[in-house]
């Protein structure tokens, strides 16, 4: 059983350098080489108080195309990175609410554009606040660092529906990170919930159910140890580092959290996030569905 303060470097991760602790970040608040970014689901959280010096990246306004269902394009990404003062080599530390759910989503989008020098604050906003560390409402000035336009890579870490269809014919593993009720399709029939925007309930054939939050210690939002994660994903879902893995949820945000865990904490080389997820698959005509 992991203690709450088990150091990141002793947890057995393949890439422990993708996480920073709250202690580390507190020591680097004034480090000009470190750019801090908060990404939340709740748009009121950042303005109500954030880590000193942190910029905000909002998942709806900043990361998504306002018209098409897609992410921002090269020019918009360059403008976003310039606003937070980044250059292509900048170290960007991301954190947020919901156990870093939205922070990992932002990190995934950053890495689609090839910005790999990223870290996640272990425990996210929850741990920082629980530890009574400083928050401020002062918003840092927008920068203009001249970040260059770079092409987005939609092949390596992202899966489209046709690729998921092809994946069904392979030995690859699929992980559904939604809640068990969403996985089983029961959620569409619960009277107090909306239908989540999908006409059909269930899951992609062959997908194993591993709700995303299983990777987290709920007390402080830190990630579980490598051994604990292996029990969840390898023993529990039969997904191993040699597998070609596709993860999905409803719109690709929760699954970006699992993508981060598999790719960086457990070191799986081939993990893609199907961001079309259930809002696409559950509405497609003729695709196979399991319940």
């Amino acid at each position: 059983m992991q203690t709450l303060e088990q150091p990141i470097e002793t947890r057995g991760y393949v890439h422990p350098d993708k996480l920073v602790s709250t202690d580390w970040l507190a020591e680097h608040l004034n480090d000009p080489q470190v750019i801090i970014v908060e990404s939340n689901e709740d748009s009121l959280l950042y303005p109500s108080g954030h880590i000193p010096g942190a910029y905000e990246i909002d998942w709806t306004r900043d990361l998504n195309d306002p018209v098409r269902r897609d992410y921002l394009q090269s020019a918009e990404f360059a403008a976003l990175m310039s606003r937070v003062g980044a250059n292509p080599d900048s170290l960007i530390v991301l954190y947020g609410d919901k156990n870093n759910w939205w922070a990992t989503y932002s990190l995934w989008v950053l890495e689609l554009f090839g910005h790999k020098n990223t870290r996640i604050l272990d425990g996210g906003r929850l741990k920082w606040v629980k530890e009574g560390r400083d928050l401020t409402r002062e918003v840092p000035s927008a920068m203009n660092s001249g970040y260059p336009e770079v092409n987005r890579d939609d092949k390596t870490q992202r899966a489209y529906r046709d690729e998921v269809m092809a994946h069904l014919e392979t030995a690859g593993k699929r992980i559904d990170v939604r809640s068990p009720d969403e996985y089983s399709g029961a959620k569409l029939h619960m009277p107090e919930y909306p239908n989540e925007g999908a006409l059909r309930g269930g899951h992609i054939p062959g997908a194993k159910s591993v709700p995303w939050a299983k990777a987290i210690n709920p007390e402080d939002g830190t990630f579980k140890t490598s051994d604990e994660l292996k029990v969840i994903y390898q023993d529990g879902a039969d997904a191993h580092p040699t597998d070609d893995v596709v993860v999905y949820c409803r719109i690709g945000e929760r699954s970006s959290h699992t993508w981060f865990v598999l790719k960086y904490l457990l070191g799986y080389p081939q993990v893609r996030n199907y961001d079309g997820s259930w809002t696409e698959w559950g509405n497609l005509v003729g695709v196979p569905i399991e319940k």
Binding site: W59, T60, E192
Partner: peptide, 15 residues
């Protein structure tokens, strides 16, 4: 709250 709510946030507040 405006129209920028996530589906989860909208669900909780609507409930």
């Amino acid at each position: 709250f405006g129209n920028e709510l996530s589906m989860g946030k909208n669900l909780g507040l609507t409930n």
